[in-house]
Amino acid sequence: MIRDITIGQYLPGKSALHKMDPRVKIIVTFAFIIVIFMCKNFWSLGLMVLFTALCTILAGVPMRMMLKSLRPVMVILVFTGILNIFYTSGGNKLLEFWKITVTDKGIYTAVFMIVRIVCLIAGSSLLTYTTTPTMLTDAIERILSPLKVFKIQVHTLAMMMTLALRFIPTLIEEIERIMNAQKARGADLESGGFIKRAKALIPILIPLFISAFRRAYELAFAMECRCYRGGEGRTRMKQMKVKATDIVASAVTAALLGAVIFLNIYFKPVIG
C-alpha cells in the first residue's frame, strides 16, 4: 500500500508540455502568473482561462485531477468570494439588509477574483503535473546558479531538496512501522483529547528522529564513498537543452502578455 505513493503529483506522459525544458517551464509558469495578475477585465481573464484550458488538454491532464488540485484552496475561494461581495463599494445596489449591501460591482469582483485564483492554481499545477520532482529541483538549481556569485550555496540547497524528496517515502514507512510497534505494546494513539493525543505522539517521534539521524549519518558515509565533494567539478548525466517547443512556449507567453495589455486598454476594467 505504502509502496504506491508517488512523490509530488507528477503524471507521466509524453506531451509537448512534458518534453519542455523544465527551466523554461518554470520561467514560463512565473510569467503566466504575472500575466494573470495583470488582467483587469473579463476579456483578458477569459483569454487566460482559455489558454489554461488549452494547456490542460494539451498536457493530457484529466479534468478530475485539475479539480482535485483545487480542493485545498476551496476555503480560500469561498472566503475571497464572500469578502469581495460584501466589501466592494460602488456600483448599483442589488440587495440591502441590516448593514450589508450587495452591489453588482461586488458580484463581478468576486467572480473575477475566484476565476483568477482558479486559473493561478490550475496553471501552476500543470507545472507539477508535467515535471518530475527531480527535474524540478535540477531546474531550480540551474536557474539559481547565478546566485553563486553572492556566495549562496545553490548546489547544497538543491541536494538537500533531492534528499528530502528521496526520504519522504522511507520515513513514512518508518512512521507506520513505529506506530505499529507502539500499538503492539499497548500504546493508545487514537482516543482522548487533543493534549492526550499530542502526548501519545512522543513515543513515535523520538524513535523516528533517532532513526532519521542514523540514516543521515549512514547516507553521508555512502555519499562520501561515492566521491561526493559538493558541487565543485561535478557533471550531470541529464543535460537540459532548450528546444523548439520551448521557444514556441516562450513566444506564446509573450504574445499572451501583449494580448492582455491590449485587452486591458481596449475594454473597461472590472477591478482597480
Binding site: 527531480t134 528521496r166 566521491c227
Partner: peptide
C-alpha cells in the same frame, strides 16, 4: 540509506557525476 536520488538511473549516475 545509500540511495541518493529519486530515480534509479539518477542514483547510478551519482558516482560518475561526482
Amino acid at each position: 540509506n545509500q540511495i541518493v536520488a529519486t530515480i534509479v538511473e539518477d542514483d547510478v549516475a551519482f558516482g560518475p557525476e561526482n
